[in-house]
Simulated scan of single mutants.
Amino acid sequence: MSTAQKIFSEKIKAKALELGFLDCGISRAEQLDEERSRLERWLHEGMHGEMGYMARHVDMRLDPRLIVEGAQSVISVLLNYFPGTQQQEDDAPVLSKYAYGKDYHFVLKDKLNALMNFIQEELAPCNGRPFVDSAPVLDKAWAAKAGLGWVGKHTNLISVEHGSFFFIGELIVDLELEPDTRQVRDHCGTCTRCIDACPTQAIVAPRVVDARRCISYQTIELKGELDETLKGQFKDRVFGCDICQDVCPWNLKSEAHQEPDFEPHPQLLSLTRQDWQEMERPMFNELFRKSAVKRTKFEGLKRNLRFIEQAADSKESHSSEE
Rank of each mutant, 00 (worst) to 15 (best):
D242V: 13
L112I: 05
E225D: 13
N285M: 13
P136Y: 11
L39N: 01
K302G: 08
E121T: 11
L301Y: 05
L268T: 11
G52M: 06
A4V: 09
S134Y: 08
W150T: 12
Q233S: 11
V151H: 14
M279S: 07
S76E: 02
K102H: 13
T155S: 15
A143I: 13
L305I: 13
E69R: 11
F262A: 10
V77H: 06
L19A: 10
V247Y: 11
Q258E: 14
W150Y: 08
N156Y: 15
G84P: 02
F284M: 06
P125N: 02
E161I: 08
Y217C: 12
E255D: 05
C214Y: 13
P93Q: 15
V160Q: 07
G84K: 14
Q218T: 00
E225G: 12
S317N: 08
T181H: 08
L43H: 05
D110P: 05
N304L: 10
G101K: 09
L171Q: 02
Q72I: 05
G49Y: 05
V247I: 13
C241E: 04
C188K: 06
N251R: 07
L22D: 01
I168M: 10
Y98E: 08
A135S: 14
R289Y: 11
S76Y: 07
D33F: 04
P179M: 09
S159H: 11
V293T: 00
I220L: 01
E309Q: 14
E18V: 01
I168K: 03
L43C: 12
G147Q: 01
P125W: 04
V209H: 12
E286I: 02
L268M: 09
K13H: 03
E280H: 14
S37C: 03
K153S: 14
R129P: 00
S270L: 06
F106G: 04
A14F: 04
I158T: 09
I75F: 08
Q31T: 08
I308S: 02
I243E: 12
L39F: 01
R213N: 10
G224D: 11
A114Y: 10
K294H: 10
A16N: 00
